[in-house]
Design a protein around this nucleic acid. Structure first.
Lengths: 254, 254
DNA sequence: AAGTGGTCTAGACCACCGG
DNA sequence: CGGTGGTCTAGACCACTTC
């Protein structure tokens, strides 16, 4: 009879928690500040720790929080805009950007990359691993796949590994005339190696940027770069004018 | 003494599970096939259901699985490439693309958008909600913010809401000469409204594409489009030639 | 009604970081 | 060493879809 239906569609607890925490972050916390630990927060809100963690995970996914084992949970700064292709039609390593070659070896690329390169699935290609730093933090780990045909000058090589060889491959690549490039972005999760390079745990969410470099009418190289999804916003500038500097998640009040 | 340390760095169970399941998906399952339910899978692998779910969540995040409450877990098809800006320098709604206006109302945009538009934080702007379909599925939900100054022809309006008005705003917008656009991509989670429009649960991972349209030397409009991260790969074509069709997650065997 | 995935609990132990 | 977040368990109930 008088049973007033308070919640016809009961919002999940963790969802409501996320909203409450989000508003608290906006009003009561400064960037870099550490939150109370999970056990205390859970007790304070009267929920199980797992539920509280579900809310924290969402907030971390949205780039609002940063959690580090053994340290604590801190308020994350706004995501940094990372330019990808502001320098359009430029070979990797040309504009002496923030990329830094780490190593190089001969590998058989993943099937999907071999398809883009139009090589045999078991053909070995030069594989350059690079690392991108911004503001002192690692933001991206990249694997650049270069078929032997794209770097004909690299025939007599003594030690086909290491950072030195990586630079040699990049140098040879820049001798080709770049005709264009296609890019694609998708969500992924960090492999064990990428995670280490990005200073995150394996499985951390990443934005996977696949770039296909076209020269002499064919695919000359393919780069697969994984960007930290929690700290990065990928910007694609075209006008050369002021870029989007702070769109970010909708830190709404309503 | 003779204690052979089998696992100096014990891999988490859910991580190992994910690998095993991933390989099983490649070899033993076809796209669209339904997996055994979670309780049975957990029993079969000898883990708690929560642990199994952690592995399934990762695989869903990578676009390998699709889970629907009340139905089951199915093998997802490869992500579809969704072109964003293959038609560069075109106003929204011009190329009669897959976008479809849903509604329009006057709102005060989020603070971040107001900053991009360079309007007062509490100034009302036309807000067009659009929906993008591909292959019969909803892939993106967009909010397009248009300040009154960008559509001077819209002064005497009777009913400033609804799909009809949305089309009117887009029509007026196309009278301006588009000079360029900036884009940014980042990870987000679906709001309740976006989730409904995308046929997902609130909080589902989305790729947020923010586009700034420049005309007459200033920002004439801003679009915030949220793409389903589980099913979409955003492609940025430039050469106009063959695009990246299937890069995707590294379905590796190693 | 039966079966599915989604949420939630109250514990436990582990890996890592700092002093 | 103590404190942090990360993993894992064995249950329970709920919301949704399908028949």
């Amino acid at each position: 009879m008088g049973t007033t239906q308070l919640e016809s569609v009961p919002e999940p607890k963790y969802w409501h928690l996320k909203t409450v925490l989000s508003e608290a972050l906006d009003s009561d916390f400064a960037v870099g500040e550490v939150l109370p630990n999970e056990r205390e927060l859970a007790a304070r809100f009267g929920v199980a720790r797992a539920t509280l963690r579900q809310a924290l995970e969402q907030l971390e996914l949205e780039g609002r929080l940063q959690r580090r084992r053994g340290v604590g949970t801190t308020v994350a700064p706004p995501r940094m805009g990372v330019a990808v292709g502001a320098e359009t039609d430029v070979w990797p390593g040309a504009g002496d950007d923030a990329w830094q070659p780490v190593a190089c070896e001969e590998t058989t690329p993943p099937a999907a990359v071999a398809r883009l390169l139009d090589t045999d699935p078991d053909e070995q290609v030069h594989t350059v691993r690079r690392s991108r730093m911004t503001h002192g933090q690692p933001v991206a780990a990249e694997l650049l796949y270069v078929p032997a045909g794209s770097v004909p000058g690299l025939t007599a090589i003594g030690a086909p590994t290491g950072a030195a060889h990586a630079r040699a491959v990049l140098r040879e690549l820049q001798r080709l005339e770049l005709e264009g490039q296609d890019r694609a972005v998708e969500l992924g999760s960090a492999s064990a190696e990428d995670a280490k390079q990005l200073d995150r745990l394996p499985g951390a969410p990443v934005l996977v940027l696949t770039t296909r470099y076209v020269a002499e009418g064919r695919t000359a190289a393919v780069a697969v770069a994984t960007y930290r999804a929690d700290t990065c916003r990928l910007t694609f500038g075209e006008t050369g004018s002021v870029q989007i500097t702070d769109a970010g998640e909708d830190r709404r009040a309503s």
